[in-house]
Simulated assay, not measured.
Amino acid sequence: MSSSPADAILSARGLTKEFLGFRAVSDVDLDVREGTIHALIGPNGAGKTTVFNLLTKFLTPSSGTIFFRGDDITGVKPADVARLGLVRSFQISAVFPHLTVLDNVRVALQRKAGLDTQFWRSNRVLDRLDDEANRLIDAVGLSAFAGHDAAELPYGRKRALEIATTLALDPPVLLFDEPMAGMGVEDIGRISDLIRRIAKGRTVLMVEHNLSVVADLCDRVTVLARGEILAEGDYDTVSSDKRVREAYMGSEDE
């Protein structure tokens, strides 16, 4: 088994996943370097989300090893992986719709403050989280919506709120599963700018279909096809690869 580069914060070696005899991911080696924005891309059915779920432990690999900061986390549970600092988002926004923006972020902050299981705490005790909550809300551009219920927010603003609740855990690694899914052009620009800002001092791994976003944001791109790594490098390198163009558009003979 090859070793991970010294600057890789998250790595996989020989990562494989089979479902009832179907090999969805096959022998993937991946290194996500600390302080970078790294994208997993590929045509539909390429295995991107399966790899993402394996790395975050929502799926158990059939074989292979996953490392975080050099430690083997292959057998670690998803909640424990999150506590280590690997925190993910989902394609569907996951916020509490009938809580305000402020209260959503306060809920997320309770774990870091040691209050996550102390539901009997008074509002007075929880009010001490307001300064940090408002700082995070401002960071994602939602200060004007702090008193609004999450259900009232447009879709793109809900995604921004989800990012704020993710940031409340202060993770060194953020994993975004199609953060631009279902967004209009204005929201895509807003969330792209937000990811760029919050990535400073952090590592980001994202699955994303929007190649314009990938070209604009990402330092490194891994292209998957049929569960295997097809190409890897910066966006200009992978986008000029004939195999990548054929995977997305089909060969010229078809």
Score class of each variant (00 low, 15 high):
Val76Gly: 00
Lys77Asp: 11
Lys77Arg: 13
Lys77Ala: 14
Lys77Leu: 06
Pro78Ile: 07
Pro78Tyr: 10
Pro78Trp: 08
Pro78Leu: 06
Pro78Gly: 03
Ala79Val: 11
Ala79Lys: 06
Asp80Arg: 12
Val81Lys: 02
Val81His: 02
Ala82Val: 10
Arg83Leu: 11
Arg83Asn: 04
Leu84Phe: 05
Leu84Gly: 01
Leu84Met: 12
Gly85Arg: 06
Leu86Ala: 03
Arg88Gln: 03
Arg88Tyr: 04
Ser89Asn: 10
Ser89Ala: 11
Phe90Ser: 01
Gln91Ser: 12
Gln91Ala: 09
Gln91His: 08
Ile92Cys: 03
Ile92Arg: 08
Ser93Ile: 15
Ser93Phe: 07
Ala94Glu: 13
Val95His: 00
Val95Trp: 01
Val95Arg: 00
Phe96Gln: 05
Phe96Arg: 13
Pro97Leu: 14
Pro97Gly: 11
His98Lys: 09
His98Leu: 14
Leu99Ser: 02
Thr100Asp: 04
Val101Asp: 00
Val101Thr: 06
Val101Lys: 01
Leu102Trp: 04
Leu102Met: 14
Leu102Cys: 00
Asp103Val: 07
Val105Ile: 05
Arg106Pro: 04
Val107Ile: 15
Val107Gln: 03
Val107Ser: 04
Ala108Asp: 02
Ala108Cys: 02
Leu109Pro: 00
Leu109Lys: 03
Leu109Arg: 03
Leu109His: 03
Leu109Phe: 07
Arg111Cys: 01
Arg111Glu: 08
Lys112Pro: 01
Lys112Thr: 09
Ala113Lys: 12
Ala113Ile: 12
Gly114Val: 05
Gly114Thr: 06
Leu115Ser: 03
Leu115Glu: 06
Asp116Lys: 06
Thr117Gln: 06
Thr117Phe: 11
Gln118Tyr: 14
Gln118Asn: 09
Gln118Arg: 15
Phe119Gly: 09
Phe119Arg: 09
Phe119Ala: 06
Trp120Lys: 14
Arg121Asn: 14
Arg121Leu: 12
Ser122Tyr: 10
Ser122Gln: 11
Arg124Val: 11
Val125Asp: 13
Val125Cys: 07
Val125Lys: 14
